[in-house]
C-alpha cells in the first residue's frame, strides 16, 4: 500500500492492527500522533442539544405569536371533532388521526391489523397511504400497542421514539414525563439520541430529567381495565392523569407536590378515585362541577 493511502486510512479510523504497525513504523508517524493529540485540545465547546433546543423554543415562542389565531381556530375545530369522538381525514385523505378526549379511551385497528388503544387525552396520527411501506405513527399522549408481525413499527413522540418488530407495549408521552413499558417481545427506545432496548416486563421512565428503570409484571396497561396505577411517580403527575381521566380541573394543595406516589385509582368513579389519592397524603377535596379543590387537613 502506498504511504499516502496508509495515512488516509489512518485518518479515517480504518487501519487493521497489522496496518497500524506499518503506520507506526513510518518516519512521520510520531509527528502525526503528536498533532493528533494536540488537535484534541481544541475541541468546540460542549453543545447540549436539549437545553439549546429549549432556548430556541423560547426565541420561537416570542416570534410565533402572530400565528396564534390559527392555532386557536384549529384548536376549536379539533375540540369539536373530539366531542363527537370521531376520527377525521385531513385535507390529504391519506393522513389519518385518531383522538381520545378526556375521560374516554379510543380503540382502533391499523391497516396491518395492529391494535391501538388510546388513553384519555391522547391522539395518534399516521399516513395511511404509506403504511404498507413504513409503519410509522405520531403519538401525543398515552397509548397501548399490540403490533402485528412485519416491518419495523415506529412510534414518534415529542420526546423520543420507540421501534419494534412485533410485540405489545405502551408509550406515555406527557409534559415533562415519558414512559415506555414493554409487555411482550423487544422494544427499542430512542430518547435524546440514546438508544435503549427493553425486553418484556421492563419499563423505561423519565420525569424531571430523572431516569428510572423498572420492571412490571402486568401484561397490559391497567387503564385497559379502567384503573390508573402509579409506581413512585411525583404526585402532581398523578393529579394530572386524574384530570384527564375524569375531565376535571384540580387545583389547590398537592398540584405542585413532588412526593413520590405509589398506588392506583379507579377510572369510573370520581369520589372513590379522589379518596384513593387524597387520603394517603392527608388531603381533603371538594367537588364543584368540573372543578376539584384539594386542601390539607388540619389536625
Amino acid at each position: 500500500m502506498k504511504k499516502k493511502d496508509l495515512i488516509s486510512k489512518w485518518l479515517n479510523f480504518n487501519l487493521s492492527d497489522e496496518e497500524l504497525e506499518t503506520f507506526n513504523n513510518l518516519d512521520v508517524s510520531s509527528s502525526y500522533h503528536r498533532i493528533d493529540r494536540a488537535a484534541k485540545h481544541f475541541k468546540a465547546p460542549d453543545f447540549d442539544r436539549e437545553t439549546s433546543f429549549y432556548r430556541l423554543k423560547k426565541k420561537l415562542g416570542t416570534k410565533r405569536s402572530s400565528r396564534k389565531t390559527n392555532y386557536y381556530v384549529s384548536g376549536i375545530a379539533a375540540t369539536l371533532i373530539v366531542a363527537f369522538g370521531l376520527f377525521y381525514f385531513l385535507n390529504n385523505s391519506s393522513d389519518v388521526e385518531y383522538l381520545a378526549a378526556n375521560s374516554e379511551t379510543t380503540q382502533f385497528i391499523l391497516p396491518d391489523n395492529s391494535e391501538v388503544v388510546l388513553n384519555s387525552g391522547s391522539s395518534v396520527s399516521f399516513n395511511q397511504k404509506n403504511w404498507g411501506k413504513e409503519r410509522q405513527l405520531n403519538l401525543d399522549g398515552e397509548a397501548y400497542f399490540k403490533v402485528a408481525k412485519g416491518e419495523t413499527f415506529t412510534v414518534y413522540t415529542s420526546q423520543g421514539s420507540v421501534s419494534v418488530l412485533g410485540t405489545q407495549f405502551k408509550v406515555n408521552d406527557r409534559k415533562d414525563y415519558f414512559e415506555v413499558s414493554c409487555y411482550e417481545g423487544l422494544v427499542k427506545v430512542i430518547y435524546q439520541g440514546k438508544e435503549q432496548h427493553l425486553s418484556a416486563g421492563k419499563v423505561f421512565k423519565v420525569f424531571d430529567d430523572r431516569f428510572v428503570d423498572e420492571t412490571t409484571s402486568a401484561s397490559k396497561p391497567a387503564w385497559l381495565d379502567q384503573k390508573s396505577t402509579f409506581k413512585s411517580i411525583p404526585y402532581r403527575f398523578v393529579l394530572q392523569e386524574m384530570e384527564r381521566q375524569f375531565d376535571i380541573v384540580i387545583s389547590g394543595a398537592g398540584t405542585d407536590n413532588d412526593t413520590l406516589f405509589t398506588g392506583s385509582f379507579n377510572n369510573e368513579n370520581l369520589e372513590t378515585a379522589l379518596q384513593a389519592v387524597t387520603i394517603p397524603l392527608n388531603l381533603s377535596y371538594s367537588i364543584n362541577g368540573k372543578n376539584v379543590v384539594l386542601k390539607i387537613n388540619q389536625q
Binding site: 453543545f47 442539544r49 439549546s52 433546543f53 430556541l56 390529504n92 399516521f126 399516513n127 404509506n130 411501506k133 413504513e134 410509522q136 405513527l137 405520531n138 415506529t154 414518534y156 413522540t157 415529542s158 435524546q192 439520541g193
Partner: peptide, 24 residues
C-alpha cells in the same frame, strides 16, 4: 429519515427531531 410521515417540516415533533439530528 422518516420522511413519508411529514409533507413538510412544519410539524413540531419533526422539527425537534431535526434539531436533535443536526444542531450539533
Amino acid at each position: 429519515m422518516p420522511t413519508p410521515l411529514f409533507k413538510n417540516v412544519c410539524d413540531e415533533q419533526f422539527f425537534s427531531k431535526l434539531y436533535d439530528q443536526y444542531s450539533k
